[in-house]
Design a protein around this nucleic acid. Structure first.
Lengths: 114, 114
DNA sequence: TAGACTACCTTGTATTAAAAGGTAATATGT
DNA sequence: ACATATTACCTTTTAATACAAGGTAGTCTA
């Protein structure tokens, strides 16, 4: 019971950290190559960043509406058509900004440990 | 107007990242030496992690209620008494868990860049 | 003794991740 | 050809929480 609560708090802390970089992580995935929602989820899973559909769809829409992403429909050989997302020029600039912020965050944590 | 929106989005992304590590950052500060709310705010400010009172008080209470922190009142030479926080044994274990998660997050981002 | 300063805390609001549920297109097995 | 499974899209509701704003009280100084 005690251990369970502790683990729950730790899981929550992990979730908080993950949330913080989610947008950044998604942009990194799309920057590498055009992809669609389910593939992004898999890619993030591979680096231990679990995200679910209910999270990613609204987020992709938000990024699209902000002009950071574009998409085009593409047929699939094994299922319904997919929305393939790419970065816009604005999205690339935004990603660059995120990288800077990420570095500054890494520096901040490193400094706090000193 | 365009530039303003862009900057707003970036600021938002920065805020998200900051939020994600806030709890971790606060624990790191307290781990170094016992401190009180306003001093924590200053310390975080010094490493470019801006936090305000309305954020930190509820958070400290939460951590206290979870058994991760303790506090004791101490007189001040220049103002009202202060609540000095320290890590409990459980808090130390929790912090260790956070460090592990942070490292795994750094690894995740590094992998996504490859 | 009035004002400034420092410290504590609470309430209301907005954002947003995640849970849960829903629609539709294609493929597969019988 | 029809039912089922799979893959893909999306929306609605809920809960957590950072921050803005506002409030109380102790201490110091002029």
């Amino acid at each position: 019971m005690e251990q369970t609560d502790f683990q729950k708090s730790l899981d929550n802390a992990e979730a908080q950290m993950r949330k913080g970089v989610l947008e950044f992580a998604i942009l990194l995935v799309i920057a590498k190559k055009k992809t669609y929602a389910n593939e992004i989820i898999t890619q993030l899973q591979d680096v231990k960043l679990t995200v679910v559909e209910g999270t990613i769809y609204p987020l992709l829409s938000r990024l699209k509406n902000s002009g950071l992403l574009n998409y085009d429909w593409e047929e699939s050989k094994a299922g319904p058509p997919r929305k393939y997302y790419t970065l816009t020029e604005k999205g690339s600039r935004f990603l660059a900004g995120c990288e800077t912020q990420w570095q500054s965050l890494e520096k901040a944590i490193a400094n706090l440990k000193k």
